[in-house]
Amino acid sequence: MDLASISFLILAAILVGSALAVVLMNNIVRAALFLAALFGAASGIYVLLNADFIAIVQILVYAGAVTILILFSIMLTQNPNSKNSNPGNHQWVIAALIALGLCAAIVFSFAQNSAIANGAGNAVTAASTNNTVVIGNLLYSPTTYSYVLPFEIASLVLLVAIVGAIVIGRED
């Protein structure tokens, strides 16, 4: 057991535990806080996978912005009369069965696939160069093969989303 493996185990335990807490907690504020923990742990996984830039963005966008947004909307939509602020619905049993079934099917498939299990996967934590620079080139470089156009479209999507959110959310 090296340090990386131990870190992975700890991070995975936090991830699964906080995910379960998010979906099972009766108090939605707590669920949202566990969601923040989940985002942070996911960022740790990215670090393990040598994806530094993604890890930082994860912290910035998810743990920072999205969690705050969710907390704000919980605050704005809270029903003070209700004890159970995060109740399940009528089909929670069916949903649990479907989720379990899908999980089993995917895990079974991965376990059966020796190519994924033993082959290329061993290179996961191999040392690599500074990814951030390469990502920057890939995203912005107008000369080499890059994702400039999707990036611009994504910015447009964000703009539309901002305007849309304002229009939808404003008082009539």
Binding site: V23, T77, N89, A95, A99, L102
Partner: peptide
């Protein structure tokens, strides 16, 4: 799958 369970079984939209 945990997220899926949450999305399918919760009443609260948030």
């Amino acid at each position: 799958c945990i997220g899926l369970f949450g999305a399918l079984s919760k009443r609260n939209a948030v």
